[in-house]
């Protein structure tokens, strides 16, 4: 039986799993669509991992990350709950220790992480607006009737990219529609969109940051060869895409779990076992009437038993639940 560490990254668009062994080798990765139902995505992922390994593995530690990290921690039982910036950086420097810049574009977030000598020294994330991220590309591909997997390759066929307004997703969409109506070719529009997103990313997210090579591009959008090419053209640098670019957050969480368990030798993992996937998880929310803040308090039930609560500002509901 192999000792393994599991990392789970619950993002807005995808829920990813990474399973590593004691030496840090990746045994299994899963990229599942969250599809607005994170609990199902998490339990499905657990079942799939159990099915592929049967009883050959023993989970020694679990790490969760992504915007759903707390939820995942409650369902699966996590030893490490870490923000996705740190998780992405950890995964990247494990594979490419010299990395000095990480470009990461996910479903709802885009970030830039600046590293020097293997340490994160600076980062930036998109601000309140999520224009130019994966979910927008998804939607545009859908609207043009193109499978998202082919988006990049089609864009690369373009000889004469058209200019698309990239500052705002709504502007970009109306600009694209107008260009379509005028008769521009789909590949030229897609290439134009790639360039617009890259321009927008560099002007907003990477604003004022010194981008030094080696540059690693990760996150779901790194699968899009059109975006990769647009980055290379704009930056004039080679862009590295790691092998497991789409599950780097999960991989980072797994590595962090492994480190944590190594540092705390006597600690026993909080992993709830694969049977967690077969329990019934329900989430609900209510509006607390205790004060005019009217916080939206979320409650998570496992098999009808209340296990976690959050969302209250004062701690009235969450304080007595040790999460």
């Amino acid at each position: 039986m192999t000792g393994c560490y599991l990392g789970i990254d619950v993002g807005s668009v995808s829920t990813n799993f990474a399973l590593i062994d004691e030496n840090g080798n990746l045994l299994k990765k899963l990229y599942l669509r969250t599809a607005g139902r994170p609990i199902e995505a998490i339990t499905n992922g657990l079942k799939m991992i159990q099915e592929s390994f049967e009883d050959d593995i023993k989970i020694m530690g679990v790490g969760t990350t992504g915007s759903g990290r707390k939820l995942a921690a409650v369902i699966v039982g996590a030893d490490v709950i870490k923000n996705e910036i740190t998780a992405h950086a950890v995964a990247c420097i494990t594979e490419y220790p010299d990395t000095r810049t990480i470009l990461e574009i996910g479903g709802q977030d885009s970030k830039i992480i600046i590293l020097r000598d293997g340490v994160v020294v600076d980062f930036a994330m998109n601000t309140v607006c999520a224009a130019g991220t994966g979910s927008f590309l998804d939607r545009q591909a859908q609207r043009l009737g193109i499978p998202i997997e082919r988006f990049g390759d089609i864009a690369l066929m373009s000889q004469n990219p058209t200019r698309i307004a990239g500052r705002c997703a709504v502007f970009a969409e109306s600009d694209m529609i107008h260009k379509q109506q005028m008769g521009y070719k789909v590949e030229d529009i897609l290439k134009g969109l790639c360039q617009a997103l890259v321009r927008n990313y560099l002007a907003n997210v990477a604003k004022g940051k010194e981008i030094k090579s080696p540059v690693v591009f990760q996150g779901g959008v790194a699968a899009n060869t059109g975006i990769k090419r647009a980055f290379e053209e704009e930056l004039g640098m080679e862009i590295i895409i790691p092998r497991y670019f789409d599950v780097m957050g999960a991989l980072g969480a797994a590595i962090l779990a492994k480190k944590f368990m190594a540092q705390n030798k006597r600690a026993k993992t909080k992993f709830a076992g694969f049977e967690a996937a077969f329990r019934e998880h329900t989430a609900g929310s209510f509006e607390c009437q205790g004060c005019p803040n009217l916080c939206e308090v979320v409650q998570i039930y496992v098999d009808g038993k209340l296990v976690a609560r959050w969302g209250d500002r004062c701690g009235r509901w969450s304080a007595d639940m040790a999460v």
Binding site: S67, D79, V80, I81, K82, N83, E84, I85, T86, V90, G118, V119, V120, V121, D122, F123, M125, L256, K259, F260
Partner: peptide, 22 residues
């Protein structure tokens, strides 16, 4: 998320690398 990542950077500058709180 942003706050936590920021504090991670402060923490690492304080304690040196490899020290990431769980």
């Amino acid at each position: 998320t942003r706050l936590e990542a920021f504090v991670d950077i402060l923490e690492r500058r304080r304690c040196g690398e490899s020290n990431v709180s769980s």
